[in-house]
Design a protein around this nucleic acid. Structure first.
Lengths: 200, 200
DNA sequence: GCCAAAAACGTACGTACGTTCAAATGCTAG
DNA sequence: CTAGCATTTGAACGTACGTACGTTTTTGGC
């Protein structure tokens, strides 16, 4: 493995267990086995390396959502959300490192245009995917991009946003205390209670 | 105003527009008009001051949720969630500073026991309040503490968690792009769609 | 096998950071 | 008025940081 890759991996690791600005260039160099000066050589600056590592981990986090959507997409529409939640809540505690890095990325977003743009884009995509999961066909490559953006602006616009917000919120809860996460059953039942307010 | 209060206010302001570790002790001193050395005198260290400021802002954020709950509590149960969402989505873009600080606090939580404990506690309380909003009586001071914790562990446990996760997720979305927030109508309709999956 | 480009290395420089401490000032009780 | 305490000030210290060198080693095309 080249020092470039080592540095990227080490930066992500440091990002997860020290946070963005508590991580020093020397920390990354030590964790990667690479040389301190290689950071400047390969990435220009420590900050550029950190940003790149954060974006990389963010992509990985997007992949987690995509995988969840795909796993649930094979079922019938009425069961998809339930399965997606099950998958997600199972995957969540296992994916602590990308979760930690994602939170770091969110915290840097207001001060880093590149990160903010990437996170905004990833959010739009995730909302589109999640909306499609609940409403539309499982995965139809023919009407990929267009229907995705259509769903954002259509009257179903809030759907993807709500599901995504739910997942993000649960992730934050997991970050603080994985043990306090509700089960997929509880979430499904809660959603039924929130949506089907007929009696009482 | 004493330098102590000035420093706390300035620390919160710096926290919002520079982030946790990009903020230097000299930044805070300059923003507050107080003297650099006063940080050590009043708070022991810059980190202690930052932590205190973050916790203070976090309390304020909790107050926002409480206010939303209270505003919605006066209505009939079936309308409460809708009103709470309306209130929350209206308040969200106006409360950008506490939101920014809260995200900073979340990002520091994994590395700061005090912040993590405070955030965990605030989360539990918020979930209890929100669950009570949707199910129980508006505000019954007689059965305050006990019923709150009961709701966490009962079969309604997921309810508060889901609503809270929704609010947190929407906050994150607002952080990245306030313009992309769905309306309360859209969210309500989306929740109905998610909960009432009877046909197709 | 050679040579130029790329990569890795060792090091040191300048700086900005958090903290400290003694002196100066303000405040209140006696 | 003043003695005693709390606060504010000025200045400096030691340190750890990011980055920029010049040098050495490795790589790849001929």
């Amino acid at each position: 493995m080249s020092q470039r890759e080592d540095l990227l991996a080490a930066a992500r690791a440091c990002l997860a267990d020290k946070g963005f600005h508590r991580t020093t260039a020397r920390d990354i160099a030590a964790a990667s086995g690479a040389h301190l000066a290689s950071i400047g050589y390969h990435f220009g600056s420590k900050d550029a390396l950190m940003t790149l590592a954060a974006l990389e981990a963010q992509d990985e986090w997007g992949d987690v959502i995509s995988a969840v959507v795909q796993a649930a997409g094979v079922s019938v529409p009425s069961e998809r959300l339930r399965i997606a939640l099950e998958e997600f809540l199972t995957a969540l505690p296992r994916q602590r490192e990308p979760l930690l890095v994602s939170v770091q990325a969110y915290a840097q977003a207001p001060y880093n245009d590149e990160i903010r743009r990437s996170l905004t884009l990833a959010g739009e995509q995730a909302r589109a995917e999640l909306a499609a999961l609940v409403i539309g066909p499982p995965t139809d490559p023919d009407l990929g991009e267009d229907t995705a953006t259509d769903m954002e602006t259509a009257e179903n616009g809030g759907l993807g946003a709500v599901v995504h917000a739910l997942l993000v919120g649960l992730s934050m809860q997991c970050l603080l205390d994985p043990g306090s996460l509700p089960s997929a059953d509880q979430v499904t039942r809660a959603l039924r209670a929130l949506g089907g307010d007929r009696e009482s």
